[in-house]
Design a protein around this nucleic acid. Sequence first.
DNA 1: CTGAAAGCGCTAACAG
DNA 2: CTGTTAGCGCTTTCAG
Lengths: 338, 338
Amino acid sequence: MLKPINTMKEVAKRAGVSVSTVSRVLANKDYIKANTRKKVEEAAKELNYRPNVMAKGLKLGRSNAIAIMIPSIDNLIFPEIVRGVEDVARSKNYVVTLCNTDEDVDKEKVYMKKLSNMGVDGMVVATMRADSHHITELYIDNFPVVLTSRHFDNTIDAIIIDNYRAAYDAVKYLISRGYKNIAIALGNKELPLYANRYAGYKDALLEANLTFNQEYVMEEINNTDSFYPLCTNLLKKHREIDCIFATNDIRAITCMRAIKDLGLNIPSDIGVMGFDDIKISALVEPPLTTTNQKLYEIGAKAARRLIEQIIYQKENGELLSPEIKILDTNLIIRKSTK
Amino acid sequence: MLKPINTMKEVAKRAGVSVSTVSRVLANKDYIKANTRKKVEEAAKELNYRPNVMAKGLKLGRSNAIAIMIPSIDNLIFPEIVRGVEDVARSKNYVVTLCNTDEDVDKEKVYMKKLSNMGVDGMVVATMRADSHHITELYIDNFPVVLTSRHFDNTIDAIIIDNYRAAYDAVKYLISRGYKNIAIALGNKELPLYANRYAGYKDALLEANLTFNQEYVMEEINNTDSFYPLCTNLLKKHREIDCIFATNDIRAITCMRAIKDLGLNIPSDIGVMGFDDIKISALVEPPLTTTNQKLYEIGAKAARRLIEQIIYQKENGELLSPEIKILDTNLIIRKSTK
DNA sequence: CTGAAAGCGCTAACAG
DNA sequence: CTGTTAGCGCTTTCAG
């Protein structure tokens, strides 16, 4: 272990004071005679004193570490969110532990146990599911948690977007551009975020008197990226489809690949719309029309709120009452739709 | 803090034994009478005992946490590497702390200090530079470090690829396909990995009796993604350029964007080759010809080696002698070159 | 204003 | 085979 070289004891000896005095000046507490403070500070500097975070944590019951729980950092919305989390955590002197769960509840539970044993001070979780009782329980125990991406109910802090509305608006836009047979590349609809995007899609269709066709819905097969064959098959069968609404950008880009490999043109033969606006989406050919959600900001806001809760909790023994923050989204019109 | 509810003391009381006995059975040490073991295990289960990692860490001088230091998780090679690290860390019961440094040495030093105070057991670092003395010093102090992506010298464990050779082979392939005026989209050439790719590029050119033209090298301007304008301007000025060798995939994809916006066709007007083979590269239009490096494996191997070193170091007080593992790379021929 | 002492939860001699 | 004891490095009463 890279352990701190010198302890308070040695600083104390060198400064000719007691460890409690050292502790006090280093923590900036109480009144200290200016002279003692100076002696201690000098001694600390000379010895290159560095605090032992574990000892402090053991004593104080906190670690200045938070965790972020996500399905996988490989899913390109998460690098941006995680970066937001990490930036504000660092700025507030917290360190972040990254946990990939692959949507596997068992893996997640194991992690939670580990983290709890480690004494992390809070966590931002992007893996909430309807049945994630292990998470709601944390909250009940006054353990700081903030949800991102996925919302549960109004009892836990969350930074989210209005998935229904965003999808609804997006599909409405497609319709306004003259698309009539709009298929959907749908993520796991057990997850409310996709259920909501799905509902927005359907409602926009219905409102425009377009019939919703069950055959037009491509559903991801057990969390694998299966949209290339799905899309290929769908378009072979239904050449009347003129547009695909994908529930995230990677799915959109995958469908674009399939469409081009079929020799079809985007957007003149088929329009494609994504969701999320990950960075790569501006670069692909054609640049992807999509709905922007401020991923970095979601992460940053989540971390900020989390730390606010941690501090409040420490001082008051309970959490601030939950806040659900709904960030707005924007339609980004690029070239993959006509 | 989500703190473990019950301590060993309480388990001991319930089982009617001493804490040391509890400690022993829970750590599976020494010989324990079968009956005592049973009593303790039952008590622990009934009380839902969970160890306090900080206390253990304080006592033992280790934390079962490692860190990974990278420029930014936003750079798409890192999600894959980090995933590799995290997977093996988790499997060996380590937790990983993510540190983005933005190539900023000061930020990195602050992190290192923090991590050291926290008692992380080791770190994989992808941010090595020629002047990273703070890192070589760690190693000298027998602190486990393994480098990825960037190599320093043979005194520190590293999992890398042969950047020179890979670039050389790549450019040689381009030449074999008939390209004659090959420009390069070059990353920061202070970094050996880019210097090496650059050298490979030059040497392949020279060997084929193609003149190396300084005007053909686009250089990134202070770590910002500036290749779109760079590429646009270069091609406007030098319409004889028939191919671009980019030193990573994102730069390649950015150049592709610029090329298309100029109304040029890939690969018939201009070929483009990337480097890294990040996942998105197979999906873009046209699919990117590139050099694959096994990013996930690099991360996984780095973590495995790191943990090996941690364990060895704990037992022997010193590190295993350094090993530089050079993973092979593969040219992936797709459609962005003719 | 400062020191002594207790103790956070755990492990590891040491002594039976 | 098991209990007693000391102590990891720090903070925090409690007394001066």
